[in-house]
Each structure stands twice: as C-alpha cells, then as structure tokens.
C-alpha cells in the first residue's frame, strides 16, 4: 500500500513537472499580434544604454533582431538602414538588437558590432542582448526577425512579426515590402495588411 502511495506521489510529481514544461514552452513561444512587448535597457555600440521608453515622441518602433554573421542579415543591412531613414522621421525608428551569444559567435561580439555598424553606416541603435534575456521574451528565433510595435496607452503593442520583404536575394525584385506596409498602415490608422510573415534565417546562437 505504501508503495502505491509512493508511486502515486511520484506520478503526481511527474504530471506536475510535465505541466511546468509545457507552461515554460508557452512562454518560449514569445509574442503574438496584440501582445504588449517588454521594454529593455541594452547597451548600444556607442556605450550608452537604450530603452524604448527613451523615445518620448516615437509613435512606435521597428525592432529588428539581427547580427553581423548571418548571410541573410547581411543581405538586409542596406534595407534596414533604408527603413530607419524612411521611418525615423515619421515616428517609427529602427531599433536593432543582436541576440547571439558572442562566446559562441565571436563575429558578433561588441567590437565586431561596432565595426560592422561603422562600415555599413548604421543610423540606428545596434544593441547587444547581454545575457540573451530579451529575444526569448519576444520569441525571436532567427536573424533577421522583425517586430513592429505601436505605442499605445497599454504599452508597446506588437503589430507585425516577420520578414522585411519578400525577396532576400534581390532588393530590386521585391514585390511586397511587408515591414513597410505594416508601418504605413499604422501611420495612416489602418489595419496591418499582413501581420505575420516568414523567411529563412539563421537560428539564434545560444
């Protein structure tokens, strides 16, 4: 009888832990459209700390998880700069976050980030996700991975998740500019036409 009790409590523990695992998983999945995105305080390549709250006059943000070492991210660098130039003035600045662990990917360490930003003329903050605390909350899985946020009374609401556009190979062959379409819609008070898109990217290095 005692054995049965021990067994059943063991079973209970097992069942409970199974629940915990699935609960964790749900958190790992990150944000969906309509969720409120967390703010952060991350170190920029100029050494200063950057938070979304610093941008008092912004209407929202184009948060992009990107890095130096992923060919897809590299293919999009110029287009990310163009996004920032086009939308910063309109109230949607680009905030780039480098999510990889630089111990795993030395090409993404802080000084490499500084160099790359200088070479490519980044006009936006390029932040190190120190300790890799932020990208899992957003649910970013790869670079580049875009989150368009709109400032609301509740906080920064997730309005778009996905790719920059529909052609990584050739900027001239792009037919749909998903991120631009999302921001344009928000700026003119419309619904985002396509809220989630997908693209191949490099998995984030832990």
């Amino acid at each position: 009888m005692k054995a049965v009790k021990v067994l059943s409590s063991l079973l209970l523990v097992l069942v409970l832990s199974a629940f915990t695992i699935s609960a964790d998983k749900a958190v790992d999945d990150g944000y969906d459209i309509g969720d409120i995105a967390t703010d952060f305080k991350l170190k920029n390549i100029d050494g200063k700390m950057v938070s979304l709250a610093d941008y008092k006059t912004a209407k929202g943000f184009i948060v992009i998880f990107t890095c130096n070492t992923c060919p897809y991210a590299v293919a999009y660098e110029d287009r990310i700069v163009a996004l920032d130039k086009k939308y910063k003035e309109k109230g949607y600045p680009v905030i780039a976050i480098m999510p990889n662990n630089p111990a795993t990917k030395p090409g993404d360490n802080f000084s490499a980030m500084q160099k790359r930003a200088e070479v490519k003329g980044f006009t936006f903050p390029y932040l190190m996700d120190q300790g890799q605390k932020i990208y899992p909350q957003y649910g970013a899985t790869k670079t580049p991975h875009v989150y368009v946020l709109q400032k609301t009374t509740k906080g920064n609401e997730v309005k778009y998740i996905g790719a920059i556009d529909d052609n990584y190979q050739d900027a001239d062959a792009v037919q749909v500019k998903y991120t631009e379409d999302a921001v344009d819609a928000l700026l003119s008070g419309k619904e985002v036409p396509e809220t989630k898109t997908r693209a191949i990217g490099c998995s984030i290095k832990i």
Partner: peptide, 20 residues
C-alpha cells in the same frame, strides 16, 4: 526560391524559417 513567405508554411505551418 526567394518567395519564402509562400513556401515556408507549405513545408510546415509551425516553421519560423530558422535552420536547421
């Protein structure tokens, strides 16, 4: 095939596009 947003969900609905 650069039209990734079209074909990634056809491989699997849950694939974010990260490899492997």
């Amino acid at each position: 095939d650069p039209k990734m947003n079209d074909w990634i969900p056809k491989v699997d609905e849950n694939w974010s596009g990260a490899i492997p």
